[in-house]
Design a binder for these strands. Structure first.
Length: 270
RNA sequence: GGUGCGUUGGCCGAGUGGCUAGGCAUUGGUCUGCAAAACCAAGUACAGUGGUUCGAUUCCGCUACGCACCU
């Protein structure tokens, strides 16, 4: 008996109990200044956008002075124009609810968290200055923290001014099984909606294959398929797996946020 | 019915009489200027059953299952 693991096997992560979100309470807290932004987080395909829009409507109905909600995106890939189906923007779900930080840079360029913090700060100030209620919605955990956790970047860059200080986090809760099923279903839907054509058009327009491959997931695997490097079936299978793995990492990030002391109110979407 | 070959962890796949490849998937985690990134960690498998042996996943027998061929 010489080799023995000293690290105990971690128990399977228990799913938190879903909460019922007290929207009236959130509105009261917002009006009293105890909350300055509502953040909807969750893994890919968990229904964040739909939930955020529904929440916006509920809050709108409860606001006494006619103030309206606006949604700020925290998604590292939805910032790119013309990368719509592959990034799952679901723009039609917003209907009349204004949204920000989507379609703000050209595909092919490199965007980063520092720029996101700067752009978020500007959008946030803009929303507040018009008296609207900001709802941050997105699955890029680092971006969410950059917007709401007072990140300071080194290299002489000053932190953006006027970031929110009292966020209220809501998570869209789905079991691992449900999460995978939703991802698979949504992948099929987006392929039918023309995801391959969207990426083919980007390539034909001159966006480099390397930059698309760098964006990973949909853009990586579909680009490789369009270039004839992999078969359709292989593309789809590897993409499915890669999205599952990505969703797992997202959940790891959110659990890490909770471990660091942040409270996320997990609730059932739909 | 007969003969031969095969049976390795969720899957693929090496290999050995003792030190128990590897890949994929899965799960847990790290995370402050590309984050849909990059990276770390975990699980101890050899069909079943007798035997040979100090010791068998590895050798022998039988059983089961699979494949091929024969009558």
């Amino acid at each position: 008996m010489t080799k023995k693991s000293f690290i105990p096997i971690p128990p399977p992560a228990e799913l938190p109990d879903p909460e019922t979100i007290d929207v009236a309470g959130i509105v009261a807290a917002y009006l009293a200044g105890r909350i300055d932004i509502i953040c909807v987080v969750g893994p890919t395909a968990s229904g964040k956008t739909r939930y955020a829009v529904a929440l916006a409507r509920e809050i709108d109905a409860l606001m006494p002075d006619g103030r309206r909600c606006e949604i700020l995106s925290a998604d590292s890939r939805q910032v790119y124009r013309d990368m719509t189906i592959g990034t799952g923007k679901d723009l039609c779900e917003y209907e009349d609810i204004p949204y920000h930080l989507i379609d703000i840079v050209e595909p092919g360029v490199v965007y980063n968290i520092w720029e996101y913090q700067r752009d978020f700060a500007a959008a946030y100030r803009d929303v507040r200055s018009r008296g609207a209620v900001p709802i941050l919605c997105g699955g890029s955990g680092l971006y969410v923290e950059t917007a709401t956790c007072a990140y300071e970047f080194g290299k002489g860059a000053p932190r953006a001014e006027g970031l929110p200080e009292k966020p209220y986090y809501i998570g869209t809760l789905v079991s691992r099984e449900e999460r995978r099923a939703r991802i698979d279903r949504r992948l099929d839907e987006r392929l039918e909606e023309g995801m391959v054509d969207e990426i083919r058009a980007l390539l034909e327009r001159g966006v480099s294959a390397d930059s698309l491959i760098h964006y990973d997931l949909e853009y990586k695997f579909v680009t490789q398929y369009v270039l004839g490097e992999i078969s359709y079936d292989y593309m789809k299978e590897r993409l499915r797996i890669a999205i599952h793995q990505f969703a797992k990492r997202q959940m790891t990030w959110f659990r890490g946020m909770e471990r660091s002391g942040i409270t996320i109110h997990w609730t059932l979407p739909d």
